[in-house]
Nucleic acid binder design. Structure first.
Lengths: 146, 146
DNA sequence: CGACAACTATTGTATTATACAACTGTTTCA
DNA sequence: TGAAACAGTTGTATAATACAATAGTTGTCG
């Protein structure tokens, strides 16, 4: 059978399953997906504006704006008016945010350790590499399409 | 950096990107994701009941029931009362359904051909293999959790 | 054999994530 | 300096989902 066709199918299934997993694995104390990804982005790429986050995830600014509200309220992200450009907002992760991020990260890492318990290190690395490459492609494609 | 941690992150990103792609790539004449996956399941695994489909995707029966409505209306899936057990419903793909499935499949295959244009055949196969394995794991896990 | 528990599917209702549109305040530039 | 462009927020609509209530069917046990 055609590899592309199978791949396409497997990706569709993957999307469904991951979506399902998100719900059933969501532990109460952990950050939800949007908060987790936002904090990850802020932790990695320093302070960002709302629009930059929206661009990172290819989501509408309004969506990010709403997702931000609870995590700003919870004190995980600090929000200041931009100094140079007062339209912008400068979002940065707080120490509490970093702590929450680490906790969730560890909890998820644990999950993946169980999930991939019998995978060799080589397979894990290989999968990671290919997935990264695929993700980059997806991003490029989506940016073109906009 | 820890491979598991990176993998976990990459999967989260993947879920987001694929979700985004679903919206921007949805061509008008193509089947939507749920219809596509349902037809795929019916084409591969013969006639199924609503509950069996729900189990396949780890979704609530009510969700499948609703997703079924438009594709039954469109004549892509035939719906009969089960002969032995009249509570059940017997869903099977119709010739029109097969045609629609093939068209969407081809359209998606094309998309993946572009997306993975510069991947070697070996990489594609490798990615497919690892993804399949990961998907199986996810399913096992989710079934346990229910 | 008949009542009741268990099961299959549908429909009602609520929630969540998202986009688009309308609006406010800020900046840039002709 | 006024108009167009831009950043973000809030209002509104839609789609996908889960859970609850319900209807019809089956199976079992006293």
């Amino acid at each position: 059978m055609d590899v592309l066709q199978e791949l396409e199918r497997e990706v569709a299934v993957f999307a469904r399953r991951v979506e399902g997993a998100r719900q059933s694995w969501q532990r109460h104390q952990d950050l939800d997906r949007s908060a987790y990804l936002i904090l990850l982005a802020l932790a990695n790429d320093g302070p960002l504006a709302v629009g930059q986050l929206a661009n990172t995830f290819q989501l509408d600014i309004s969506t990010i704006s709403r997702q931000l509200a609870p995590i700003v309220d919870a004190g995980l992200v600090a929000k200041e008016r931009g100094e140079i450009d007062k339209r912008q907002v400068r979002l940065s992760i707080t120490p509490e945010g970093s702590a929450a991020l680490e906790a969730t990260r560890e909890s998820r890492r644990q999950l993946y350790a169980e999930l991939l318990a019998d995978w060799s290190e080589a397979d894990r690395e290989h999968f990671l590499g290919l997935l990264k490459r695929f993700n980059e492609r997806l991003l490029e494609r989506q940016q073109l399409d906009r």
